[in-house]
Amino acid sequence: MKGKNGDRRARLANDIRRQVGTEATKRFLRTLPVFRLEKEMPKRLTDLLDRLDGAEADKTGGARRH
């Protein structure tokens, strides 16, 4: 038996799903930069990852990944 709290949580979850699934919310979320998909990783980040790989390889004595 779910009880009173279980029913309330289920209703809340359904309300959230319904609101998030509206076209207006989807349209709004698509405008936010956080939700945009980058096609390629920026060079600045790949350079930092390369430096991190090098530092880890130096520390552990292992070979670098490419």
Results as ranks from 00 to 15, higher is better:
32 L>Y: 09
47 D>I: 08
61 G>L: 04
29 L>S: 10
44 R>S: 15
60 T>Y: 03
30 R>V: 05
53 D>P: 00
30 R>K: 15
58 D>S: 04
37 L>T: 13
44 R>A: 14
28 F>M: 13
42 P>F: 06
39 K>F: 05
58 D>C: 01
40 E>V: 03
38 E>T: 03
50 D>L: 01
46 T>K: 11
39 K>T: 09
58 D>L: 04
48 L>T: 08
63 A>Q: 10
60 T>A: 02
28 F>T: 12
28 F>C: 07
31 T>L: 12
61 G>E: 06
43 K>H: 07
57 A>I: 02
51 R>P: 00
40 E>H: 04
63 A>Y: 05
55 A>R: 10
48 L>E: 15
37 L>M: 11
30 R>S: 12
58 D>M: 02
60 T>P: 00
49 L>N: 01
62 G>Q: 07
59 K>D: 05
50 D>W: 00
27 R>A: 15
59 K>C: 02
56 E>R: 06
52 L>Q: 04
63 A>I: 06
48 L>Y: 14
47 D>Y: 10
49 L>R: 02
51 R>T: 06
48 L>K: 14
43 K>I: 12
38 E>N: 08
56 E>K: 03
41 M>V: 11
58 D>G: 01
36 R>S: 08
53 D>M: 01
48 L>M: 15
37 L>S: 12
44 R>C: 07
42 P>K: 04
29 L>F: 09
26 K>I: 13
47 D>N: 13
61 G>A: 04
59 K>G: 04
25 T>F: 15
44 R>D: 15
48 L>C: 11
33 P>Y: 04
37 L>R: 13
35 F>T: 09
35 F>C: 10
46 T>D: 04
32 L>K: 11
31 T>D: 10
57 A>C: 07
26 K>F: 05
25 T>Y: 14
39 K>I: 05
33 P>D: 14
50 D>F: 01
60 T>R: 05
50 D>N: 01
33 P>W: 03
61 G>T: 02
61 G>I: 04
56 E>Y: 08
39 K>R: 13
26 K>C: 10
52 L>F: 07
54 G>L: 03
42 P>Q: 05
51 R>S: 09
46 T>E: 09
63 A>P: 08
56 E>G: 00
35 F>G: 13
38 E>A: 12
60 T>I: 03
42 P>S: 02
26 K>G: 07
36 R>G: 08
34 V>F: 09
49 L>Q: 03
47 D>L: 08
32 L>D: 07
62 G>R: 08
49 L>E: 05
30 R>Q: 14
58 D>T: 00
31 T>Y: 06
31 T>I: 02
45 L>P: 04
59 K>N: 05
45 L>N: 11
25 T>S: 10
33 P>A: 09
47 D>Q: 13
34 V>Q: 07
59 K>V: 01
34 V>E: 10
51 R>G: 08
36 R>H: 12
27 R>D: 15
32 L>N: 04
35 F>W: 11
45 L>R: 12
60 T>N: 07
33 P>S: 09
29 L>P: 05
40 E>P: 02
39 K>W: 09
50 D>R: 01
45 L>Q: 14
59 K>T: 03
42 P>I: 06
40 E>N: 10
30 R>L: 11
34 V>W: 06
50 D>S: 05
